[in-house]
Design a protein around this nucleic acid. Structure first.
Length: 699
RNA sequence: GGGCGACUAGUUCAGUGGCAGAACGUUCGCUUCACAUGCGAAAGGUUGUUGGUUCGAUCCCAACGUCGCCCACCA
C-alpha cells in the first residue's frame, strides 16, 4: 500500500480523470440519479457571454453554485444545474467585426446574411470556451441540457414573449430621445451605459437679447449642440432673470430667434442659472421641450456626424470637430464669455466605450409600469429574498424610477423583432430575461396556464436560487423576476445570492484592459482546481468584497496535501472502512469521545453556514476541524491507541468513520480529491462520493 | 449630488458588550515510523480619528477621515 500511494498529492493526474468518471456516471443529469433523489433542486447558471473567457468572478460564482448543487445532490435532491450561454448581441457582433477588420473586411462589405453566418461560425469555434473552463473547475452541470439563447426553441420563446406583450398593448413604437452609440450604430437602454470621468471644459456663452445691448450667459459642456438650441431656460423663482423671461434671444452663429422660458427642473446654483435647451440632444432638454412645445432641431445624426441643420460651418463634420469650429465662431462674434476646466462624467457605450449621443430615434419600447409593479411586489412580499438583504434597495431604487424599456437594437446579431417589415433585433437582455423557463421548455410545455405534466418545466421550475454579481441586479435579475411572474405566473427563483466582487489586493477593480485581471485557468494549471476553489471560497466571507490574495490558493494546496496524507495514514493503519459508527456500542477513550463531539458539532456548523450561504465560514470550520482536531490531536493519540490491543479495533473504526464523514463534508468544496480518496477506500458497497448520503445517521 | 460598504497582526481576513483570533509570512528548534506542502514553539495589535451611551466599547450610537462600489437628466 505504501509504495502505491505517493507522499505528495498531485492534482493534475487526478482531477481530469475524476471529472471523466463523473461524466461517465451520468449523475450530473437528474434523470440518472438513483431512486432516493426525489425532490427537485434547480439552479440555472447565469449564462456567460459566448465572447467571454472565465474570470475570477465567474469562477467564484460557479464554485458557489457547485457547492450548493453537490450538497443538495448528496442530501438526496434531484439536482439540476442547467448550463448555457448568451448570444450577447452587441458584444459578439463587435468581436466578429474586429476579426473581419483584420481581414480587411467589414460587415457591410460582407452583407447581413454572410455576416450572421460568420458569427455562427465564430460561435461554433469559440462560443463554448467558458463552459469548457467550467468543466476544468469541476462544475457538475448537466451538460446534456446545455442551452443557448439563440437555439431554435429559445428563438420561439422570445417570439412568443414579444407577441404576448404586443397583445397586451405594452409594446409601442415611437420617436423618442434615446441613447445612441454611433460606433455600434444602435440604440442602448439606460442600463447599457457606463460613465467615465473626463477632464472637460465648461463654456460660458453670451446669447444677446433682441433689441437690446444686454445678453444672457449660459454655461455648457457641449457648445456644438447650441446649433440645435430652441430656447434658454431659467428657474421660475430665479430673481436674477425675472426681467428677461419671455424675451427673445438671438442665438449666436445661426442668428435664430429663441425664447427665454422658465422650468422648475433648472438648477439655480449651476453655472449661471440659465441653461440652453436642445430638445433633440439632451434628455432633460427633451423633457423641457415637450412641456413648452419647443421645436426639435436635430443637429447630430445617427452616424455621429453633424446634420444639414448644423448648416455650413459644421455640416458633415464629426461632433468633436464641430465643437472646435463653434468655439472659433463664437470667439469671432465675441460671444464666448469664458471657459473653465471642468471634471464631469460622460456616458459611454458599455461594449465599446464610445461616447453616447442623445438623439431622437424611432424605436420599440416596452411599457414598464405594470411589469415593474410585479417585480416590486414579488420582492416586497418576501416571495424572493436577496442575500444580503441590502441589495433589495438597489433593486427597488431602479424599479421605482423606471422608464419604458427601449428594446429595439439596430444591430444584426440577435432575435429579430417578430413583426413584418421590422428589421431591427431585440435587446439581448430581452431574451436573457426568459432564461429560467425558456431553458426548461417554455412555451412548448406550457398550456392553459400551467406546465405539461412530467415536463422539465413542471419538475424543475421554479429554480431554487440565483447566484450572481451585483452589477446585473437590474439589467438581468429584475427582468427575470417580472418575466417569470408574467409568463409562468410564478417567481423564477426563491432566493437571490449577490456574491462578493473580487478586487485586486489593493482594492481596485480587476480589469482586463488595465492588466489587473487574474486568469483562474492559470491558477488551475498551477495549483489544480480544488486548490483554486479552496482559495476562492476561503476568502468568500459573507458578501464582503474580496481583496484577492493568491496565498490562500497556496494554503488550499497544502490543505489538500494534508488530507491526502492523513488518508494515506488511515489506509495504512486500517483494513476496513466504515461509514457509520455507533459509539454507544463501543467503549470509547476520552480522545475518541472528544473527536466524536467535535465531528458532530462541525457537521452542524457546516450545514448551518452553507444553508445561510456563508461558504467561507463553512470552509474555515472544516479546515480547523480536519487539520487541528483530527490530524494534530486525534491522529497522534490514535497512533498510541493502535498499539493497545483493547483499543485497537475501535480506534481503526473511528479513524475510518471520521475520515469518510470528513470527505463527505469536504466534497462540495473540493470535489476531486475527496472523490479520488473515496475511491481508494475499501468500502463494502462501492458507490461514488458524489451521490453518497450527506447526513450521518449514527449517534 | 444621493445611497451603500469597508477600516482589527507585516499581508488577506474572522470575531465578541467583559483576557483580541485564523491563514499566509517572519524567527527559533526539530529529517519523531501520514505529511518538511510537515511537527513543536515564539515574536507580532492603542481594533482609522473624535465624541457619546454603559460599571465596562474593538463591538452599540453620532460626527469626521480614508478607500471602494452603486445610483443620478447640474447643462
Amino acid at each position: 500500500m505504501e509504495q502505491e500511494i505517493p507522499k505528495q498529492y498531485s492534482p493534475h493526474d487526478v482531477e481530469e480523470r475524476i471529472y471523466q468518471t463523473w461524466e461517465k456516471s451520468g449523475f450530473f443529469n437528474p434523470d440518472n440519479l438513483p431512486e432516493r433523489h426525489k425532490k427537485p433542486f434547480t439552479i440555472a447558471i447565469p449564462p456567460p457571454n459566448i465572447t467571454g473567457s472565465l474570470h475570477l468572478g465567474h469562477a467564484l460564482n460557479a464554485t458557489i453554485q457547485d457547492i450548493l448543487i453537490r450538497k443538495k445532490r448528496m442530501e438526496g435532491y434531484r439536482t439540476l444545474w442547467l448550463p448555457g450561454t448568451d448570444h450577447a448581441g452587441i458584444a459578439t457582433q463587435n468581436v466578429v467585426e474586429k476579426q473581419l477588420k483584420k481581414e480587411g473586411l467589414s460587415r457591410h462589405t460582407l452583407g447581413k446574411e454572410k455576416f450572421i453566418e460568420r458569427i455562427w461560425q465564430w460561435k461554433e469555434q469559440y462560443g463554448n470556451t467558458i463552459l469548457e473552463q467550467l468543466k476544468k473547475l469541476g462544475a457538475s452541470c448537466d451538460w446534456s441540457r446545455t442551452r443557448f439563447t439563440m437555439d431554435d426553441n429559445y428563438q420561439k420563446a422570445v417570439k412568443e414573449a414579444f407577441l404576448h406583450y404586443h397583445k397586451k398593448g405594452w409594446l409601442y413604437k415611437a420617436e423618442k430621445v434615446i441613447n445612441w452609440c454611433a460606433r455600434c450604430a444602435t440604440s442602448l437602454s439606460d442600463l447599457e451605459l457606463e460613465y467615465k470621468e473626463i477632464n472637460s471644459k465648461l463654456y460660458y456663452i453670451n446669447y444677446p437679447i433682441k433689441d437690446s445691448k444686454n445678453y444672457i450667459t449660459v454655461a455648457t459642456t457641449r457648445p456644438e449642440t447650441m446649433l440645435g438650441d430652441t430656447a434658454v431656460a431659467v428657474n421660475p423663482t430665479d430673481e436674477r432673470y425675472k426681467n428677461v423671461v419671455g424675451k427673445i434671444l438671438i442665438l449666436p452663429i445661426h442668428h435664430r430667434e429663441i425664447p427665454v422660458i422658465t422650468d422648475e427642473k433648472v438648477e439655480k446654483e449651476f453655472g449661471t442659472g440659465a441653461v440652453k435647451v436642445t430638445p433633440a440632444h439632451d434628455l432633460l432638454d427633451a423633457e423641457i421641450g415637450e412641456r413648452h412645445k419647443l421645436p426639435v432641431i436635430k443637429v447630430i445624426g445617427p452616424d455621429g456626424k453633424m446634420t444639414a441643420e448644423a448648416k455650413k460651418i459644421c455640416e458633415g463634420t464629426k461632433v468633436s470637430e464641430c465643437r472646435e469650429k463653434v468655439i472659433e465662431e463664437l470667439k469671432k462674434e465675441g460671444a464666448l464669455e469664458k471657459e473653465e476646466g471642468y471634471m464631469h462624467n460622460i456616458a459611454v457605450c458599455y461594449r465599446c466605450e464610445t461616447p453616447i449621443e442623445t438623439i431622437p430615434s424611432l424605436q420599440w419600447f416596452l411599457k414598464m409600469d405594470e411589469l415593474a409593479k410585479k417585480a416590486i411586489d414579488t420582492v416586497k412580499n418576501g416571495d424572493i429574498i436577496f442575500h444580503p438583504k441590502r441589495w433589495e434597495n438597489v433593486y427597488f431604487g431602479w424599479l421605482n424610477n423606471i422608464r419604458d424599456w427601449t428594446i429595439s437594437r439596430q444591430i444584426w446579431w440577435g432575435h429579430k423583432i417578430p413583426i413584418k417589415g421590422e428589421e431591427d433585433v431585440l435587446d439581448t437582455w430581452f431574451s436573457s430575461a426568459l432564461w429560467p423557463f425558456a431553458t426548461l421548455g417554455w412555451p412548448f410545455d406550457f398550456a392553459l396556464g400551467k406546465p405539461k405534466k412530467g415536463s422539465d418545466l413542471e419538475i424543475f421550475y421554479p429554480t431554487a436560487m440565483l447566484s450572481t454579481a451585483r452589477d446585473i441586479i437590474n439589467l438581468w435579475v429584475a427582468r427575470m423576476i417580472f418575466s417569470g411572474a408574467e409568463f409562468m405566473g410564478k417567481k423564477p427563483f426563491n432566493e437571490v445570492i449577490i456574491h462578493a466582487t473580487i478586487l485586486t489586493k489593493d482594492g481596485k477593480r480587476m480589469s482586463k484592459s488595465l492588466g489587473t485581471g487574474i486568469d483562474p485557468m492559470g491558477l488551475i494549471e498551477k495549483y489544480g482546481s480544488d486548490a483554486t476553489r479552496f482559495g476562492l471560497i476561503w476568502q468568500a466571507m459573507g458578501s464582503q468584497d474580496i481583496h484577492w490574495s493568491e496565498e490562500h490558493v497556496l494554503a488550499g494546496r497544502k490543505f489538500l496535501n494534508k488530507i491526502w496524507n492523513a488518508s494515506r495514514f488511515i489506509l495504512m493503519a486500517t483494513d476496513k472502512i466504515v461509514k457509520t459508527y455507533d459509539h454507544r456500542k463501543k467503549n470509547p477513550t476520552e480522545a475518541d469521545k472528544a473527536l466524536i463531539q467535535y465531528l458532530g458539532s462541525m457537521q452542524k456548523t457546516v450545514n448551518k453556514h452553507v444553508d445561510k450561504y456563508e461558504f467561507g465560514h463553512a470552509l474555515h470550520e472544516l479546515y480547523d476541524f480536519f487539520w487541528h482536531e483530527f490530524c494534530d490531536i486525534y491522529l497522534e493519540t490514535a497512533k498510541k491507541q493502535l498499539q493497545d490491543d483493547e483499543q485497537k479495533e475501535n480506534t481503526k473504526e473511528l479513524l475510518s468513520y471520521a475520515l469518510s464523514t470528513s470527505l463527505k463534508l469536504l466534497h462540495p468544496f473540493i470535489p476531486h480529491i475527496t472523490e479520488h480518496i473515496w475511491g481508494l477506500l475499501p468500502h463494502k458497497d462501492k458507490k461514488l462520493l458524489i451521490i453518497e448520503e450527506w447526513e450521518d445517521k449514527t449517534h
